[in-house]
Computed example of a mutant assay.
Amino acid sequence: MTDGTGNPRRGTHVLYVHFDAVPHTAPEHYEALLALLTDITPLVQALPPDAALADVRGALRYFGRSAAELAQLVRLRALALHGTDCTVGVAASPLLARMAAQAGEPGQVREVRPEEAADFLGRRPVAALHGVGPATARTLCAYGLDSVGRLAAAPLATLQRILGAAQGRRLHERARGIDPTPVTPTAPPRSASAEHRFERDELDAARRRGALLTLADELGFRLRAEEQVARSLTLTVRYADRSATTRTRTLPEPTAHTPALATAAYALHDALGLQRARVRGVALRAEELTAAESAARQLSFDVRDEKARRAEAAADRARRRFGAYAVRPAGTEPPRGAEPPPDAEPPRAA
């Protein structure tokens, strides 16, 4: 599409790309999808585990296409080369592009032009505004500010009294579509992941927590073997209807300690309030990995914590000698299809 003079139409130049159904256990798949964007523009910001931002302003004239047409090209290449569909939001800022991608059904390209921004934002619920969490949304709705349009119309001083000076100003600007945040080129941070698929849709929360303990134990063992620690943990819950929920939590300190990883996984799971949800599978992803020797650790005077870490180190030595399932925390089960070696001793709970 052109502006009538033969040049690509300008105005929208930011793509928010969400890759649908990216395997969390295959980081190389995500990196290959990112390469589709870097073939178009060097300004690509990775948003793992399954999204990215791209500034295609410099690519419009080179390709002779509009930003929306480049988004369609990304979708076509992702499907043809990797069998992965994607949802793309196209706008003049990362905020609007992200909201455009999240505004409808997956597997589409949705463009919000600058002249359409006010109307698009005004019709969105306040919870859809990036940066508004559940608690903030409840607070705003209690004051009748239940849509982005009403939030934009509210006086700045009122929002600052309700939310505080910094957050009130930030949301006041975002409600008007003001987002000066640039697309900062980044590579995906190193991470490690593990996934468990249930034999049938799982309704039992205790079984789901048992699977999370198994995944936390697997990740912890791998990280300790590689002398790495994680700074954050991401939980993905996949449901029977093929939808998924992803939540991330920053850990109190960088760690590879299985109980610490399991505690964070339980907290993420319990915060979802799944109740009777039909869960098809769960995945944990340890992110922002760094060398264990360079990570600071809070000293503890808890004798039980020190004993647990010594027992964990002894269990790791047994695993390296007798197999990954020689010793494992009580309540865990090896993944389906995984069998210990014939000469290994029966697994024992730690």
Rank of each mutant, 00 (worst) to 15 (best):
D201Y: 07
L95G: 08
L215M: 02
A330H: 12
A308S: 11
S294M: 02
L163S: 06
G177P: 03
A308T: 07
L163G: 03
A152I: 03
V14G: 01
P259C: 13
P335K: 10
A267I: 09
A46V: 13
E116I: 01
A262G: 11
E253C: 00
D270I: 02
R207L: 13
F322L: 14
T41R: 09
E111N: 03
V22R: 03
A26Y: 04
L81S: 12
P346C: 00
R124G: 06
L47K: 00
L159D: 00
R249T: 15
Y62E: 15
A271L: 00
A267H: 14
P182Y: 09
P252R: 02
V282Q: 11
Y143V: 03
A267N: 15
R123N: 13
L121F: 10
R98Y: 11
L251T: 01
S66L: 06
P188F: 06
A71G: 09
T186G: 04
R280I: 05
D241H: 05
R348P: 11
E339Y: 10
R57G: 14
T2K: 08
A68Q: 14
H24V: 14
A330C: 07
A240Q: 09
L171I: 02
E202P: 07
D39H: 02
V303R: 12
M99V: 06
A135T: 15
R65A: 12
G337T: 05
P347D: 07
